[in-house]
Design a binder for these strands. Structure first.
Length: 592
RNA sequence: GCGCCCGUAGCUCAAUUGGAUAGAGCAUCUGACUACGAAUCAGAAGGCUGGAGGUUCGAGUCCUUCCGGGCGCGCCA
């Protein structure tokens, strides 16, 4: 049980009691009353803003109300002292046993500690990566992939029913361009074009993609079909089959890359399948019948008119009725659907599948697209569907502060594989979460390999490894002791009395709350900071033992104390492992 | 020009989503290894939270406006 939730209900009960006795007005709204750990630990264990929040509606001075609450809160079983501070905060000091109980919970529940039910089983759809199947994935994709994957795991831990989804853009013009590029590489594979011919076509923009990564695709096509697609100059003959071939091939590349990063989606949705099933027509008919489409002419953007601007009548969606700046086009001038049109259909499809809680992870360069999709979702669901779009900012790849620009594989950008090969999947995953997603991130090869406090991956893993090391020694020192989690849960935890020991227990007790708030805010990076903080506390406690021998975890002549402290060490390890599990990172047993 | 995101210690970043005296790491200075792993730790110093108004018990956080940076701006996805 979450201690802060317990205290919140205690506080609510006390307020209800006072109201029942007529000392304060009945029916006060308690939603804004909080029970939180104070920032400054010297203020106590739990702080509540109840008096300040309720003062005005109760028509009382905050201090008077606080004084009344304090008297009652002192009688709450968990509380040993209560006091008023500052402008009307009430600080509660809890029995140390509360924190010891939290540790026992950790040992009993294991890495599932922190699992919550805040989500109440509500279905959430998290869509992430959704990279076009046109080439290998780069660092930007890696950030979105890790962020989305970990957010999904976090939401699941907090009790949501999560579906992890990838949207394959296999129907638009981009994949046709790749088909054309593939054809050039294919003709090269057949000896009908030279490398220079292909590069020339790329330079003249006859083809839009030219990376070496298409060479093996062309070879595979040649192996399967021989010269079948070489003769005809009629695109309609060979574009569709080559498109299909390259999409299938590239999706395998993408899936391999994701697998190497430890990212796994539950569902891959195809744009082309949506189109073929007529879902785009359906969605647009829906909007049309609601009177939300019309044919009109858009104004050019103010202050920056494109050179080739000419006014054209287009089928438009009334996005402005739902908070967007301008109405948005649904059809291109050649009469085909825009990307936006199929995206509307796709989001309608998600809603139709039972999701009203949608999360999309996009690159920051898609920021301008957020409002129109949210507008469309509002229109489709009559405001019932929620769409949160999390934008991931740029990743700069550095080595010792020097930009790493090129990939050996792709030629123009650093690929996801380059990252993984350089530092390993676990490090990539962790580092991607050490910043808020909407802040740019520097990924420095040299820095993330450093074995210092500066490097959060190392620092957290080191804490875990140190904990395991203690257990290796303990097994020798106390060969008969039961050092399993269940055994340690029975240890006499009242032997944990040092303020720093209790401090660590407090942090452990904060884990469920951290999970819940990070999940609700869609901010997995908070877990990285929590783990760093916990690791710091643990390292601090460890070194205290260097100075004061009696504080070391293992006391050869006192098995009871040793067991209690081993319980604490194990608790730290389990919570770190619990956090790393959300991150999809393996905790290490020892550092090498 | 318009929209979105951002601006916090010299540097890189936090700040329990509106809470108390704004916290960490790096760099600088001082100290702790006859070790449960010093790959670590303890301490000192460092701030007008870009500027100016506003909202309220209370603002780094919300609103307005300026300044500075990033991204985007019909028929690409």
């Amino acid at each position: 049980m979450n201690i802060f939730a317990t205290l919140k209900s205690r506080i609510d009960a006390v307020i209800g009691q006072l109201a029942a006795e007529g000392k304060i007005p009945a029916g006060l709204d308690l939603a804004r009353v909080s029970a939180e750990p104070p920032r400054e630990s010297s203020h106590g264990d739990v702080a509540t803003n109840a008096a300040m929040v309720l003062a005005k509606p109760a028509g009382m001075a905050p201090k008077d109300l606080a004084a009344m609450l304090v008297e009652r809160l002192k009688t709450v079983p968990e509380v040993v002292d209560a006091s008023v501070a500052g402008p009307g905060f009430i600080n509660l000091k809890l029995q140390d046993d509360i924190w010891r109980d939290a540790l026992r919970d950790v040992l009993t529940i294991g890495v599932a500690y922190g699992d919550g039910k805040a989500g109440q089983g509500e279905p959430v759809n998290v869509e992430y990566v959704s990279a076009n199947p046109t080439g290998p994935m780069h660092v930007g994709h890696a950030r979105g992939a890790v962020f989305g994957d970990v957010l999904a795991r976090l939401l699941a831990k907090a009790g949501f029913a999560v579906t992890k989804e990838y949207y394959i853009n296999d129907a638009g013009g981009q994949v046709d361009h790749v088909a054309r590029a593939l054809r050039a590489r294919y003709l090269q594979a057949l000896g009908k074009l030279s490398e220079d011919d292909v590069l020339g076509m790329l330079q003249r923009k006859e083809i839009m993609y030219g990376g070496d990564y298409l060479v093996p695709v062309a070879e595979a096509l040649k192996a399967r079909d021989g010269e079948k697609w070489a003769a005809s100059t009629d695109e309609s003959i060979w574009v569709p089959p080559l498109r299909e071939f390259t999409v299938a091939y590239m999706m395998n590349v993408v899936k391999d890359d994701l697998k190497a990063l430890g990212v796994q989606h539950d569902l891959f949705s195809s744009e082309k399948a949506l189109v073929d099933k007529g879902k785009v027509d359906d969605a647009l008919k829906f909007l049309e019948s609601a009177g939300l489409t019309y044919t009109g002419i858009l104004e050019p953007p103010k202050g920056k008119t494109p050179d080739d601007w000419e006014p054209r009548p287009q089928l438009l969606f009334k996005a402005t009725e739902f908070g967007d700046e301008v109405d948005r086009p649904l059809k291109k001038s050649d009469g085909t659907w825009t990307y936006f049109a199929s995206d509307i259909a796709y989001h309608k499809d998600k809603v139709d599948r039972g999701f009203n809680n949608l999360v999309n992870i996009w690159g920051a360069d898609h920021g301008g697209y957020v409002k129109r999709v949210q507008a469309a979702l509002k229109a489709l669901t009559a405001g019932k569907g929620k769409l949160d779009v999390q934008l991931c900012q740029m990743v700069r790849v550095l080595n010792n502060g020097e930009p790493v620009k090129m990939s050996k594989r792709a030629g123009t950008f650093v690929t996801m594989r380059d990252l993984i090969d350089e530092v390993g999947k676990d490090v990539v995953r962790f580092i991607m979460l050490t910043r808020k997603n909407d802040a740019p991130l520097d990924f420095d090869y040299a820095k993330v390999k450093e074995k210092t406090r500066e490097n959060p991956v190392f620092y957290v893993q080191y804490a875990h490894a140190r904990g395991r090391s203690v257990f290796r020694h303990a097994a020798e020192m106390f060969p008969t002791a039961d050092l399993t989690d269940a055994g340690l849960a029975k240890a006499d935890l009242s032997r944990l009395t040092d303020p720093d020991e209790i401090g660590v227990l407090r942090t452990l007790a904060n884990w469920p709350r951290t999970i819940e708030s990070a999940a609700i805010a869609h901010e997995p990076h908070r877990l990285a900071f929590y783990m760093y903080e916990l690791a710091a506390q643990f390292h601090g406690l460890w070194n205290k033992g260097n100075d004061a021998v009696q504080l070391r975890f293992l006391q050869a002549n006192d098995q009871k104390v040793s067991e209690a402290r081993l319980a604490l060490v194990r608790g730290v390890g389990l919570v770190i492992a619990s956090g790393l599990a959300v991150f999809g990172v393996e905790p290490v047993e020892e550092m090498r």
